[in-house]
Design a protein around this nucleic acid. Structure first.
Lengths: 159, 159
DNA sequence: TTCTAAATTGAATATGATTATCACTGTTAA
DNA sequence: TTAACAGTGATAATCATATTCAATTTAGAA
C-alpha cells in the first residue's frame, strides 16, 4: 500500500502536482476499496470518515486529476454516475467488467481477453488501438443458481 | 425504411404502446441518421425540423422507450451525454465502436468480434452473457496519416 | 359513430451529478 | 520575509435528464 502511494506521489510530482493530505486520503480510500466501483459521492463519504473537513469539490478535482494521470479509470455503467476504478500497477489496458442485469453486481476480469481482437482491428480497420472498454451484461453465477432454484420449486406453493 | 418503421410499430403494439406521430418522427430521424451517434438533444433538434411542436421531454421518453424495446442502444462515450444508436435489424448483440482520441470520430464495427471471448467468459467465469459493450480508444486512419505528414514536414517551416 | 378509459403529450418544474467561482490558506522559492 | 501560486472548501451555477400535471389524443367498447 505505502509503496503504491509512493509511486502515485512520484507520478504527481513528475507533472508538478503535489500529494496533499486530501489527495492522499482520497487515494487511500481508493486503495482500500479496490474491489468496489465507487462513485464520487461514495468516495467523498468514505474520505470524510478520515478527513471530515474535506470538500466534495476537492474529491471531484482529485478524481479528475487521477483520471488524467491514468491512475484511475472513469467508468460508466449506465446509471447516471461516473465510477472510479484503480488501474492495476503497470496495467497497460483497462480491465473488463461483468455486470449482472439481475442483481447489479460487478465483477472484474484482469486478464487481457482482447489481444487477438485488437490485432484484427489494427489490421483490418487500420485503427491504432490505445485502450479499450469491454463490459459484458448478463447473469452472474449467483443469480443463475437462484433462477434454477426458483424454477425447481415452481408448483409447490411456498408462500 | 417504411419496412423498418412497420416493424417497430409492431414491436410497440406487442407491448401495447402506440406509434404516435411524435414517436414516428423520432424513429425517422434515427433511421435517417443511422451513421451518427446522436444525443437526445441532437435528436430533438432534428425532429423539430419536421415536427416543430414536439417537446424535449417526449423525445427523452421516446428514446427511453425504444431503448427498453432494444430498438436503440443507449451508449456513453464519456462526454456527459447519452447517445442513441439504432440496433441493426435482427442483431443479437450490440455493435462495437472505434473512438478516435484525436478527432473524436466514431466508427462502427458490425462484425461480432467477441464470439470466442464470450465462450471463455461463460466457461471460465460462469457468467451468462446477454450482451456486451466494446469500445476501442485510439487513433483513426485519418489522424494517423496526418501525424505522419506532420512529422515528415518537421523542420521545413510551412507557416 | 359516440363514448370512455387509458395512453400520450408539452410546458414547466424538479432533480441530481458535475463544474466553476471565489476568497482564503498553505507552500515554495527567491 | 515576501511574492507568486497551487490547492482548498463553500457555494452557486450548469447541464442532462426525470417528473408532474393539466390538456389532448387514441383505441377500442357500446
Amino acid at each position: 500500500m505505502e509503496h503504491r502511494i509512493e509511486r502515485i506521489k512520484k507520478q504527481l510530482h513528475s507533472q508538478s502536482y503535489k500529494l496533499t493530505p486530501q489527495r492522499e486520503a482520497t487515494v487511500r480510500v481508493l486503495l482500500e476499496n479496490e474491489e468496489d466501483h465507487l462513485s464520487a459521492e461514495d468516495v467523498y463519504l468514505l474520505v470524510k470518515e478520515k478527513a471530515p473537513e474535506i470538500g466534495l469539490a476537492t474529491v471531484y478535482r482529485t478524481l479528475e486529476l487521477l483520471s488524467e494521470l491514468k491512475v484511475v479509470d472513469k467508468i460508466n455503467f449506465g446509471d447516471g454516475v461516473s465510477r472510479y476504478d484503480l488501474r492495476k500497477e503497470g496495467a497497460e489496458h483497462f480491465h473488463h467488467h461483468l455486470v449482472c442485469i439481475e442483481c447489479g453486481s460487478v465483477e472484474e476480469i484482469e486478464e487481457d481477453l482482447l489481444g487477438d481482437v485488437e490485432k484484427l482491428v489494427e489490421g483490418q480497420w487500420g485503427f491504432q488501438v490505445k485502450d479499450h472498454r469491454l463490459t459484458f451484461h448478463g447473469i452472474c453465477r449467483v443469480c443463475q443458481k437462484q433462477a434454477v432454484a426458483a424454477s425447481a420449486s415452481e408448483g409447490n406453493e411456498e408462500n
